[in-house]
Design a protein around this nucleic acid. Sequence first.
DNA 1: TCATGTACTTAGCAACACTAAGGAGTAGAC
DNA 2: GTCTACTCCTTAGTGTTGCTAAGTACATGA
Lengths: 106, 106
Amino acid sequence: MNGLTELLKGALEGIVLQHIAQGETYGYEITKYLQDLGLEDIVEGTVYTVLLRLEKQGLLEVERRKSTLGPQRKFYSLNAAGQEYLTNFWARWDFLAGKMTQLRKA
Amino acid sequence: MNGLTELLKGALEGIVLQHIAQGETYGYEITKYLQDLGLEDIVEGTVYTVLLRLEKQGLLEVERRKSTLGPQRKFYSLNAAGQEYLTNFWARWDFLAGKMTQLRKA
DNA sequence: TCATGTACTTAGCAACACTAAGGAGTAGAC
DNA sequence: GTCTACTCCTTAGTGTTGCTAAGTACATGA
């Protein structure tokens, strides 16, 4: 999908957080998952910058563990703040999506 | 709604364009309309900057006309490029909204 | 005359997705 | 045993965009 970048702003944090909420995971896996979902615009570098930002905001628990296949992995999971952020994110998303629908059929 | 700003990025151009598509209008009216819709985060200054950007991108026809109530109004309507942009915008929106739904119930 | 409402412009800021470049580990092919 | 491919993460910098702030200007009514 072309020109998705700007639309992703603000949504991407929620997207990543939502995937982590479904079970502890790490950057490389998240990237693959989003690619498989069809969000091919979201590439590796982008995912990592989002993760670092979320981490700095204190929304994630982090643990480094060895991988069998390469360098260490940085495993992420949601903490309470992350869970709360995610709830608020979906509220914002639903709000906007509702308005968009209203606007469209106005 | 709190913290909507980032989510609006990329969506706002589409929102404004969609409203103009429903009939020739001007900045001040668009602002009021969005406020009434419940998008109270979107204030005057923001709408005008979006309009200028859309105009620069060549998506709008512009015509200045007198108002009975104040300074001249700058009336906008969509041209062909604007119409096409809007169609593509909704395609992008639907694509993303679909992925968000998938992700959420995964 | 002074406040209020209408109507637009411009300069500058902060957040965010993205790019580019690189380092470092493991496995398998040759 | 070296080379390639894949895995996995980091950092510095860029462009776009929504927002803020400050200002200009016209009209109406108190």
